[in-house]
Design a protein around this nucleic acid. Structure first.
Lengths: 365, 365
DNA sequence: GATACGATCTACATCGATGTAGAAAGCGCC
DNA sequence: GGCGCTTTCTACATCGATGTAGATCGTATC
């Protein structure tokens, strides 16, 4: 494979001049630049990244450490991070930790310090007590709410506010007995805790008393099946409610399914809200109202913060940034909104959604 | 950061000796090795990957080019590839092409030739006519069925056989009118085509005549909603059928939903089969019988083949490898299988499944 | 005691791009 | 004619690990 030397020889200049051309050094005659570019083309020259990295002390690669790609939220987040990183000329390696404590600590041990310029880390096993482990000697940006006020830059969303808004939406619709699916008493700090707080805050502001029979704790697993079971228990216990708030979409979808199964009408009898705005929410029947956590913004912000750290710019202290959430209101709370044309169909609407491209929707293979 | 020289000085040996220790060179006195290891520990030395790569001409990184991480199949495949690569000491960068032709061609242009040792490529936009583009000068392994007999190593599953087996399973249950969801007449070659072929082969072997009213073409998008719509059209048209074969799981799940909604019993009135064995199939109600395409095997095989090419071993000609599929039989075709204990529940069974870890199931965040 | 050989270690060049320092050429100006 | 300045380009060392060639020291062999 051709090297910079080869190009230089062919263009009749020094290797450094080729380097200068490629790096946009200004003091180069147009004729020289043209000769160099021609030589590059003719030889099909491509720069050796390893050599450049060795010189520069940078690799142009960042790591994204997440629990698992199989979780839709993280898959979609990864897509967004890869895209954001690409605009900076960065490549991303994804490091699935499995949410295993040991492997999360390994991420922080810097085993890949030399491979990557920085790390974006979304812990699942580590908690507030592990904040000290975050004092590492490489650029690090933290995601999520497991470690609220650690010593590093942190991007998250305002879960409390988002959860409060989702609850408020239900209150605004006149619902007064709102069941919760997803509480997790065993948790020291995390998603379940903050989302419950938001829910309680909304109730309190509305002057509604907390009713613990409405708050179900399906455990740490937040699959459809747990949502379904929790809903079944509510129904079996004859608890009365007119709305359900699932702390993530899969819980909500599981609950939705059991509701319909049991003959309830959604949203007439029971309104349902989820959280995360995974793609499936648009395709459930009825489509599920959900909180969009600002995935894209989180991804971009995390990459930007990391870039500043890598570049040595940015303030001394750590930063906390909250992405903007939005509530995506769909039929599961407000019912069929008859459009002017008034098309009728059993399946959910098919309008193009900005985040749905043909590809996104392509075959499962 | 400490270099090999620093370690060498501290241990009182030459840099090369440190290198030899780290690379398992056999002729080293135990005492020397110990001193070196001690020095490494004391200095917290970590090897500079860029330098090693420059010397070795390898990077230890491979690229995985896929359409989108948001598609569950590819997310799960990526997880598997990352894991398989890790056992070889390789790191994976994922390159989402969006299924866009241009970006797929860019993958083959070798823009990252110097960053990665090889590429595993699952095309979506490219087809059989593009086979020539696959003649690249870096190690490449192809996945999927878009380009059946290209000039490079190829790992796929036997879609025809798998599809035939799924159909046969329905035939074995006594079903004779099997509706298909997922045909795609516009396709030159691809998943829809080969799976339809398998279906037709099974019918023919059973002496059942093809009935085109049973074969629906929901288009290139294979979401739940398309499955639901296709099923609705079948019902509206009063087509009679006793089984449904969805060419992927989301199509099947959408169809399943409409079936239940319309009052059909599954599987008593209609048996349903999907394809891909995505995690959700275990959590639908009833759980969905589906073809497991051998994801893990595909991932491992692809990495192995690539390793051979990178290492320069392996035969001259290209290889075609078909991963073993299995049919995961669940309630959507055979109904509730009463276990000896005979527990009864509305929700799907909760037995631990080897592929479901607590993490895999953890919160959506 | 000389030779051969294995075990153990080292010096040095090398991979390819780039930072540093400075050379060469052209131009304006006193 | 000499000085200073800008533009354009080059030589060389350097980043850190490793392949190559070979030095050194024992020990076994005859």
């Amino acid at each position: 494979m051709a090297t910079m030397q080869d190009v230089a020889r062919r263009a009749g200049v020094s290797a450094k001049t080729v380097s200068n051309v490629l790096n946009g050094y200004p003091y180069i005659k147009e004729s020289t630049r043209a000769r160099v570019m021609a030589a590059i083309d003719e030889l099909g020259y491509q720069m050796n990244i390893s050599a450049r990295n060795l010189r520069a002390g940078r690799t142009g690669i960042i790591a994204l450490a997440i629990p698992e790609l199989s979780l839709p939220y993280f898959a979609q987040l990864s897509d967004a991070v890869i895209e954001a990183a690409a605009t900076k000329g960065w490549t991303v390696v994804i490091e699935p930790t499995g949410g295993v404590r040991e492997r999360e600590l390994e991420v922080l041990s810097g085993a890949r310090r030399h491979l990557v310029d920085g790390v974006i880390f979304s812990p699942l096993a580590l908690g507030p007590d592990d904040a000290d482990h975050l004092r590492v000697d490489f650029p690090l940006v933290l995601l999520g709410e497991r470690i609220p006020h650690g010593p590093v830059d942190h991007v998250t969303m305002n879960n409390v506010e988002a959860s409060r808004a989702a609850t408020q939406h239900l209150l605004d619709l006149g619902r007064r007995r709102i069941a919760v699916i997803g509480a997790f008493p065993g948790e020291q700090m995390g998603t379940a805790t903050v989302r419950l707080n938001g829910y309680l805050a909304a109730l309190e502001a509305a002057g509604i008393e907390r009713d613990d029979t409405l708050i179900t704790s399906p455990g740490p697993w937040w699959h459809r099946t747990e949502g379904a079971q929790a809903m079944q228990r509510l129904l079996d216990a004859d608890i009365r409610f007119d709305a359900v708030f699932g702390f993530n979409d899969t819980l909500a979808l599981g609950a939705l399914h059991v509701l319909l199964w049991s003959g309830r009408r959604v949203p007439e009898d029971v309104a349902v809200v989820g959280f995360d705005n995974i793609e499936e929410t648009r395709f459930s029947m009825p489509p599920l109202t959900s909180v969009e956590p600002g995935r894209l913004q989180i991804a971009r912000t995390a990459v930007d913060l990391l870039a500043e750290r890598v570049g040595g710019t940015g303030p001394a202290g750590q930063r906390e940034i909250y992405a903007d959430f939005t509530l995506e209101v769909r039929e599961s709370t407000v019912g069929r909104q008859r459009s002017p044309g008034g098309a009728e169909a059993v399946s959910p609407p098919l309008e193009a959604d900005p985040t749905v491209t043909p590809l996104d929707a392509a075959s499962g293979r």
